[in-house]
Design a protein around this nucleic acid. Structure first.
Lengths: 299, 299
DNA sequence: TCTACATTTCAAAAAAACTGAACCTTTATG
DNA sequence: CATAAAGGTTCAGTTTTTTTGAAATGTAGA
């Protein structure tokens, strides 16, 4: 079986003929002589067995088939151009794909504008966003399932082989739904009173490492949910209580849907960090390392 | 500015090398000699200024850049193949695009499976579905805004220049919402009693032709809506009464949400027809003419 | 009719692609 | 460890494809 007779040269020729309006003008634009264009076109017409131009009149007019090839061909030419430049990028240190692990404390949608911008600039570099929670997010990095993670320094597992950079501060607030019994008094609840209500906790997505527990541990009345979003919704519904990252619930605090309860224990604010494996130096990784900032927290 | 150095030959070469596992085997598959492949590859490497293969080991190994070109290139080769075969189709009588006018008496979603099937078989032939109502649907055909229409023979405007084929029968039922006063008695309402309630009518989408009126005319209490779907919803909400095509409301009649009211006047069932301009003989048009059957009515 | 384009034809020339034999290298094998 | 087998490249020569320029053809408009 022979080759497909369509050549990129033909696509470029059709494009030039359409833009310049004539074989002669197109030939000049392509640094060729008109008869060369005639040759290119006739060759494909013969191989494909169809007419590309209607030569009955004075000037050659494209047939519908040629017009289809023209229109779709432009997309193909664009793809080929993108592909060539992307290949060069990859050869010069841009990764073919980048996997970003995002801890559930962050609103995933906050990253989309950044990913979108990256994708416009580098159409052939695939960005994967994978989600994790607590030490599970770190595990993705250690296991090589992610090239870059957004997480917190809270449970830094003291394994070396990676580097971190801080990009924001997260204060955790103990919050309850507005109808919750604890909401009636802004302060002064004892531990025993608080322990009367279930605590919502996010389940650690780690498969291998010892799951860490968040905040202070109470054995009784734990309700575990898979993501921070679920935890927020559970607490909004009054199902239980617990610490939530302020940046995720600012709107609910402002509207009064959630109420902050002040406890006498103090939670030092934890750090939002990005982390990557040492020695890994791709340019896409570098791009995101540079660009991830407090914006991702929504502040 | 020179050409993009990426050639379809290179894409085919990379594909063969990947599939066969070696330059030698790939060369054989391409009816070439290994050194010809070396030539093709080296030429692009030189023009593009990047390495496509790592030749440090025994066997040449693709670089990440080559792998990207391979993977994306496969899609481009597929596109080129589709494009060539579509161009041949068009040259042999398949239209580049087909515009189908669908009257609002039909459920548009009923056509989707057919359009989907067509699209799989003819990826580069664009199908446009445009909507109309009453004589407006016919107008699309007469004006040349549609190549094929699905309509009813009810208001056949006696203009020649088109042909029709019947593909189903539509019985119109006078229906009201289950809470509507007229629903309490299955029969025996007088015209005066019925005229106490507003009639919902679909507005004719025609711009030029004289709008036709559906069924018997009553000047008072007319509520016009743009589509049959709106009319059904309006009558479901009890806003008014009127004839509805049985095939669109069978589920509502079965569930009791709508109730048929029998009147002593008889409405002869109208015909569901397709129509096209005489002398227009594209194969895509023919395909749909053959394939549109009672299925579109949902029976 | 004459002129100005627009395109094609054709033979020759240039460029690109292909071939086959010789030649490295690395892996497999007795 | 010597030898064979296989993968890939180099290179000079050959074939094929593409380009060129001059002449020919044909159409539209003055």
């Amino acid at each position: 079986m022979a080759h497909n007779p369509l050549s990129l040269d033909l696509l470029r020729a059709l494009d030039a003929i359409d833009q310049r309006g004539s074989f002669a003008a197109a030939a000049e634009a392509l640094h060729k002589v008109p008869s060369a264009l005639t040759y290119t076109v006739q060759k494909v017409e013969q191989d494909l067995g169809i007419d590309l131009f209607d030569r009955s009149g004075h000037r050659a007019k494209m047939t519908p088939a040629a017009r289809l090839i023209l229109e779709e061909g432009r997309g193909i030419l664009r793809d080929i151009d993108n592909l060539a430049s992307s290949a060069k990028k990859i050869a010069s240190g841009w990764e073919p794909e980048l996997r970003i692990g995002v801890d559930t404390v962050f609103e995933p949608a906050r990253l989309y504008p950044l990913v979108h911008e990256f994708n416009e600039a580098h159409p052939y570099i695939k960005v994967h966003l994978v989600h994790g929670s607590l030490s599970g997010t770190w595990e993705m990095l250690i296991n090589g399932d992610a090239d870059l993670i957004l997480s917190t320094d809270l449970l830094d597992p003291k394994i070396d082989g990676y580097e971190t950079r801080r990009f924001g501060e997260m204060s955790m607030v103990f919050a309850v739904a507005k109808n919750h019994p604890l909401a009636s008094n802004a302060c002064d609840w004892t531990h025993e009173e608080i322990e009367a209500y279930p605590t919502i906790v996010v389940r650690d997505s780690s498969k291998l490492m010892a799951p860490r527990t968040i905040g202070w541990t109470r054995q009784n009345k734990l309700i575990t949910v898979p993501t921070m979003r679920d935890k927020i919704e559970a607490q909004l519904a009054g199902l239980g209580v617990g610490y939530l990252p302020r940046h995720r619930i600012q709107a609910e605090l402002d509207s009064g849907a959630l109420v902050q309860v002040k406890l006498n224990e103090t939670n030092p604010p934890s750090e939002a960090v990005i982390a990557w494996r040492t020695g890994v130096t791709g340019k896409a990784l570098g791009w995101f390392r540079e660009r991830i900032d407090a914006e991702v927290l929504g502040v």
